[in-house]
Nucleic acid binder design. Structure first.
Length: 427
DNA sequence: TCTGGGGTCCTAGGACCC
DNA sequence: TCTGGGGTCCTAGGACCC
């Protein structure tokens, strides 16, 4: 009877970026440590010690200078190549324990345990936790429940009470679920962000229990179907399915804040050209073509001088993944939104209208990109850059000087190589 | 000179996630 | 001095068609 019950687990890496750094630099263990966003701007990952001191998530680091000095907080630039590789190792290990896995983000995954005995699941999850720590060096927490949203709630509890729960908490058949939900602040629920939280509290809905028991019609009217789904999931009705197949992206964007403000079209051309190159690599990796490209520029909002934001969308005459073609249109677009005298702080591009690259003939009159000489050229380019490292070969328009590039003063070295050897599973 | 209703598609903007 | 980046989904409203 209970064998086909839906049970889902959410695995979440604890303080992921900090934990990655600690694997390769054990001196950081036990010390308050934070990792910064690009350009060494904001705090995006904090060790438990740093949280305790009162470093808030997302705070600009220059505002914490006093605390940093007083408590000797270790401050690191982000190293996304390292985190990506560690993420891959974690996910690979998880998938050995449970092949029905949805990789939800760089540090989170949903696992399906449908049909398993809830008692067994807890022990199994403890084994997973132990194994990931041993093999990869990353501590994780696991929340379990009949829906994704309840698994998220359970995960928060597991993480908050590591001692008592051992990092594993199960809400399936929990005898006192109302109490648990009552203790969960409404803004802490998956799917309830800042705006909805504000609205709900204004209307007396303070916690997860009250949200769960709100009338459907009211929820739908004020929070759209999204909010209604969340409430249903809190009731144990599964509305958000596991997505085990990796889906192709529907849009691919690349953007950066610059290390220093830019003034000239030339400099912006180089930056935009580089963003298109990066997005193009990803586009071809997922075997897609782009039918449109969006370009935007932003002036520095924290400085004196004219505020400026502008963007332009271009529909391409044919879907393509050819980097020279994409850059060409992007730069044409950029030219139309460029203004003299603006201090540019950030720019970016978005490839949209993505279609599979194996559709045969798109337009009777235009030579199609797939199967062409140009496609071969791109394949060679990607192979070289994969083999010999990024930017071994790149379009000249990207520039060599790279005045726009990011500040990253405290970045850790590139420690990892390919993780090919999987240890044996011992149970 | 005056004028319906319904369907579909597209886009911008706002909400959310990590 | 110094304030991240990359996504998704939903809705409302306008354009267009019959």
């Amino acid at each position: 009877m209970s064998s086909d019950r839906k049970i889902v687990a959410l695995v979440d890496c604890n303080n992921f970026y900090v934990s990655c750094e600690r694997v390769f630099n054990p001196k950081l263990d036990g010390k308050p440590t934070v990792v910064l966003s690009n350009n060494d701007g904001c705090v995006i990952s904090r060790s438990d010690e740093a949280k305790l001191i009162g470093i808030e998530m997302g705070v600009p680091i220059f505002k914490c200078q006093e605390l940093v000095e007083k408590h000797k907080i270790q401050v690191l630039s982000s190293n996304y190549v390292l985190y990506g590789d560690m993420s891959h190792r974690v996910m690979k290990t998880l998938s050995i324990f449970c092949p029905e896995i949805e990789i939800y983000s760089i540090d989170e995954a949903f696992l399906s345990f449908s049909g398993m005995d809830p008692e067994e699941i807890n022990n199994y999850c403890r084994l997973i936790t132990k194994t990931v720590l041993k093999w990869v060096g990353i501590p994780i927490s696991i929340g379990i429940g009949p829906t994704k949203t309840l698994a998220k709630v359970a995960n928060k509890i597991a993480k908050k009470n590591k001692r008592a729960t051992g990092g594993v908490f199960n809400l399936t058949d929990h005898p006192d679920i109302d109490k648990v939900l009552e203790n969960m602040e409404v803004g802490g629920i998956w799917g309830i962000g800042r705006q909805y939280s504000k609205f709900l509290k204004k209307n007396g809905v303070m916690n997860a229990l009250q949200l769960r028991d709100s009338p459907d019609e009211w929820l739908h009217k004020n929070l759209t179907v999204v909010g209604m789904r969340t409430a249903l999931e809190l009731r144990g009705v599964s509305c958000i399915e596991l997505e085990i197949m990796q889906k192709n992206k529907k849009a691919i964007g690349r953007s950066r804040s610059f290390g220093t403000d830019l003034f000239t079209l030339d400099e912006l051309n180089q930056a935009v050209s580089t963003f298109v190159t990066m997005a193009g690599e990803y586009l071809r990796k997922q075997k897609s073509l782009a039918a449109g490209i969006h370009v935007f520029v932003i002036s520095n909002p924290f400085k004196e001088g004219p505020r400026y934001f502008n963007s332009v969308s271009i529909n391409l005459p044919r879907p393509t993944a050819l980097v020279s073609e994409l850059i060409n249109y992007a730069l044409q677009g950029l030219k139309t939104i460029f203004r003299e005298g603006v201090k540019y702080k950030k720019a970016g591009i978005l490839l949209f209208g993505l279609v599979p690259d194996d559709i045969t003939q798109l337009d009777f009159f235009l030579p199609s990109y797939p199967g062409s000489k140009e496609k071969k050229l791109m394949e060679v380019l990607d192979i070289i850059n994969t083999k010999y490292g990024r930017n071994t070969v790149y379009p000249l328009s990207n520039g060599v000087e790279r005045k726009w590039k990011m500040r990253q003063l405290k970045k850790s070295p590139s420690y990892t190589t390919n993780w090919t050897e999987i240890p044996e599973v011992k149970t």
